[in-house]
Structure formats: C-alpha cells, structure tokens
Write a protein that binds this DNA or RNA. Structure first.
Lengths: 225, 225
DNA sequence: GCATTTATTTGCGTATGCATTAATACATCC
DNA sequence: GGATGTATTAATGCATACGCAAATAAATGC
C-alpha cells in the first residue's frame, strides 16, 4: 500500500481518536472522572483541542460533561444495553429489508459474505476478538447496503456505546455459532431479494442477542460496564 | 409563574440556542455559509463559544464544518426526508408498542390526549403553526412514554433536521385531519394496552406522512429545503 | 493571452491567561 | 455539637493572540 509520507492530523482529531481508543480499551475506565487539564496532559496538548474532542464524544454518548467534577466516562447499565439493542433491532431490520429490496448481486454482497466467512474461521479458531471484529464489519456493511446514511450513523454510535461492555461479556458466553447461522440466513434472504424474510430474520437475530446479553448481565449481577 | 431574577446562561449555551433558533427560523438559510467570526459577531461573543456550539450542532446534523469555507447550514433533500421519516417510522413504532405494553392509565396519557385535542382545535381554527407545535408535543410525548431515552433523543434530532423543511411544506398541503385520526387511534391502542395495534397503526401513520411529504416535494420539484 | 509561480491575505487551529464561580475547608455563632 | 456564614482553592468558560496553511491575487514567463 502506498502511503502519504505523513498525514498532519490536527490535535483535535488526535484527541478524538485517542480518547475514543482509551475509552474502548478501558484505559479510561467506565465511571471514572477526568479533568480537562488531566486529559490535556495525557495527550500532550492544551485544553482547547481536548475540550472540542470531549464535546463531540459527549454528543456520541460516550462521556458526560459535569462542570467542576470533570468529564465522566459513561458506564453502561443493563437498561442501557436493552435500550441500545432495541434501537439496533429496529434500524438494522429496516436496513436488511432495504438491502434485499435493492437487489444486490453476489459481487455487491462480497463484503457481507467475507465477514460471515471470517466469523466462521474465528469461531473455529476460538478467536473471539477476531469474531467480534468481523461481526462489526457484518453489521456495518449491512446498514451500508441498507442505503440510509442516518441509520448507518446511529447504528455506529450505538455499537460504540456497547463496545466496552460487549468485550467483557464476550468471554462469558458460549461460542456464537448460532449467531453466524442467523447471519447466513440474512445474507441468503438479501441475495434472493426476499425483503420480508430478511427483515424478520434479522429482527429475530438482534432480539435474540439482546436477551442473551441482558440475561447474562442479570445472572452475573453486572450493573455497570 | 415565578421566575428567577436572571439566569446567567453561559455563552456556549446561548450560542447553541440562538444558532438553533436562527436555523429553524430561516435566519441562517439552508445552504448558506458563515465564518466563525461572522457568527461570533452576530452573537456578540468571541469565536470560542461559537466553535463549541457549532461542534455540537454538527453532531446533531444541522450544519457542516468546512474549514476555510465556513460552516454550512445543511439543506434537506427529498432523499434526506425519506431517510429521516424511515428512522422515525421504525423508532416511534417501537415507542408506541412499548407505551402500550406499559399499561399507562388515563392520567399518564393526559399530555398525549391534550396534544391531540390541541391539534383538533388548531385544525378547526386553521392554525397550522399551532397544529405543528401540538404535533411535535404528541410525538415527543409518545417517545417519552415509550421509555427508551435513546429513541427519544434520536427522534428529537431527526425532527429538528426536518423542522425547516416541514414548515414550508406545511402550507402546501390540505389540512391534516386524517393525521389526527391516526393519533387518536394510536392513543386508543395504547390506552387499551394493545401493543401490536399501537405499533401497526403508528407505523402506518408515519409511512403515510412520508409518502405525502416525498410526493409533495417531487411534485413541486423542491430539491433542497 | 494563458499558464505557472510567487506574494498576500485571510480564516482556522491551538495555546495561553484571566475572570468567574462552584466546591471545599475553615471559622464563628447559637 | 451542629449549623451557618466566610475564605480559599481550583476548574472551567471565555477572550485573545499567534502561527500556519489554504485560498486568492498578483506577477512573471512562455
């Protein structure tokens, strides 16, 4: 891959990306408070770009600004998970329907297919991280094919909000073999142009995921992730 | 109403509210570009709080930051309208369903009922502005009763995005008498606890609204609002 | 004339400093 | 001893300044 010698990325953007990463990595743990100056020091920049990044991240629901107490990394409760999965269920179902209506050919569905294959491989190798990454790609590509940019954006935001939480629950449950069966059915329905089926199957898929996660959190008494 | 003598609202918040209002009022027209310094001058403050407000508004999809060309007030195309109404259809339908499942009594449904009554009055008086305001209240209260805060937030954002556009189309179509029939049916279904019906009726309501608006825009060749 | 290069302007990104105000510690009074 | 008022601290909100890069204008070469 040819690369530009160096892309001069602005401090604001760097703050945005690095803070996101640190939140996902648990480097900035859920529920923790951080002063603007602390974050600025952490990233070796002044407060200004940090403030801008933090403003944006607040809009994405990843943290909360509490004047004089610092920015709080938002924890995700089981109720939050339920809310988020409900949103995903509704919006992704429509995306699946629309993708089926669009009548994509096999080539256009390649990314979707690859993601599913990758998940199979990951499951066989018991590589849950790789599975999660491929799962993300599947759902991102699905909403992309759905053709509604707002849905794609919202779904992305919601998935970001559950990223941390999902990572911890990932290792608490059996291998998601059934999940990939669902994915294949969705793909099948889209490829055959059956919009109603695509919608129904994907809806069931997400509802099932929701119940799995929610009951898992309840079982382990996990209130905040 | 008793009021605090004066609430010292921050400049950032003032910028946020005033810019929003100016966008909705068409004071900052769709598609227009504005330099940060221009907006700062307009609001009598420095660039800093303006930048913060603009960042937030970008996240809400009301404007776009194009460095060196100014912030552009985002126009809404017919395709955007279609996207937005699709999102509203999916998310509000679930809210209606959940509201019905929650089993609210008549008192809890008072705001919803009042909004409907207000719309009847507004229609009788041919006061479209009042009708639109009451319609907003109906939909806001519906998603509130749905109990999913994220849905409420997203729906609010989407409605903000179509505000300007809706205002102009409002006077191009017949009185929305049928619309309020739908509202009553939704209320009825919620009051009687029929979640499936509530969902179905509201879905039809929003889909109908979408087709009305989209065909209206097509008919009048309105590409950007 | 047209294109290409150079100069100039101008808007933005970021750092910095200050004033404001909330939170905390302290002191005083009942 | 508890409560209320005051002082101190410290974090934020905002204004300002400055350097850089992009856009525009000017100039030079062909």
């Amino acid at each position: 891959m040819s690369k530009a010698p160096d892309k001069p990325v602005s401090s604001s953007q760097r703050a945005l990306h690095e803070l996101r990463e640190k939140i996902f990595a648990g480097d900035l743990p859920a529920g923790s408070d951080h002063l603007e100056s602390e974050l600025a020091g952490l990233l070796n920049m002044s407060r200004t770009p940090v403030r801008e990044a933090v403003l944006t991240l607040e809009g994405q629901g990843l943290l909360e600004l509490r004047p004089r107490k610092g920015v709080r990394i938002l924890p995700v409760s089981p109720e939050d998970m339920a809310e988020i999965y409900d949103v995903l269920t509704e919006l992704e179902s429509l995306a699946a329907q629309r993708a089926a209506e669009a009548g994509y050919d096999a080539d256009a569905l390649r990314l979707l297919t690859e993601a599913i294959d990758d998940m199979d491989v990951a499951i066989a190798e018991q590589d849950l991280e790789a599975w999660a990454a491929a799962d993300d790609r599947f759902h991102a590509e699905l909403v992309h094919l759905g053709g509604n940019s707002r849905i794609a954006g919202i779904v992305g935001m919601m998935i970001d909000q559950v990223r941390r939480a999902r990572k911890t629950t990932l290792f608490m449950r059996p291998l998601p073999t059934q999940s990939n069966e669902d994915h294949r059915q969705v793909l099948q329905a889209i490829a055959s142009g059956d919009a109603t089926l695509a919608r129904a199957v994907h809806r069931r898929h997400r509802q099932h995921a929701k119940s799995i996660i929610v009951s898992l959190l309840a079982k382990h008494r996990l209130r905040y992730l």
